[in-house]
Design a protein around this nucleic acid. Sequence first.
DNA 1: CCGTATCCTAGCAGATACTG
DNA 2: CAGTATCTGCTAGGATACGG
Lengths: 120, 120
Amino acid sequence: MENKGIAEEEENKCQVFSHVWEVLGKRWSLLILKNLYEKETARFNELKRSLGKISSTVLSARLLEMEREGLISKRIFPEVPPRVEYRVTARARELGIILNELGEWAVRWKSPKMASTKVQ
Amino acid sequence: MENKGIAEEEENKCQVFSHVWEVLGKRWSLLILKNLYEKETARFNELKRSLGKISSTVLSARLLEMEREGLISKRIFPEVPPRVEYRVTARARELGIILNELGEWAVRWKSPKMASTKVQ
DNA sequence: CCGTATCCTAGCAGATACTG
DNA sequence: CAGTATCTGCTAGGATACGG
């Protein structure tokens, strides 16, 4: 492991992070993860049903993106009719802990909703 | 404080969280926060310059959204030419700690980038 | 300097239809 | 069942111009 400058490492952290963020920030991503956290393992249409009104197209896209980010793993059973099982990875489970902290932070402050603008 | 069911509280946490998330997930939001964390206080065009190629329109919108979320506070000095200073609130500083954890999580795993699909 | 008002465009969500 | 292919509408974001 080379000796990187701290600034460079900070820069790197930011880049890598915003990369994942772009996926997580998209519509449905978090809801999909939430479902998988709870269910431990789920199939495509099962997921689709429990998500309400998401389309196959979008669900498929989100799953692929998150798989590429190493958040979801996929297991194909070569049967007829086809069976595919999705689950969260260890990486995603670690993320879940932090997301939970985020959730607690969010309610702890409960959006003040008042303007904080001050005129001097 | 009433006695809420845990499920209800969980539901609430999720709602409040996704609310903030909608703001944070938008383009530029995190970068703006990052700049303010470092600078402690910044003016509009100063911010605009250091962000690269953001437009006034968008910067203005992001700042307003985050102000409404209680993440940013604004101070107007009634001078000519006008001076306005932005800074992060205590709420945002707490958030910063968690975001930092997120950053560390992101590099710790460094997107594997390989397909995790397994055929059984 | 600090923004708002307009207009324009790309990209994404969603609907529908169809395959292995 | 588990997806792709294709099309459409919408809206976030960017460029530009202007006003307090």
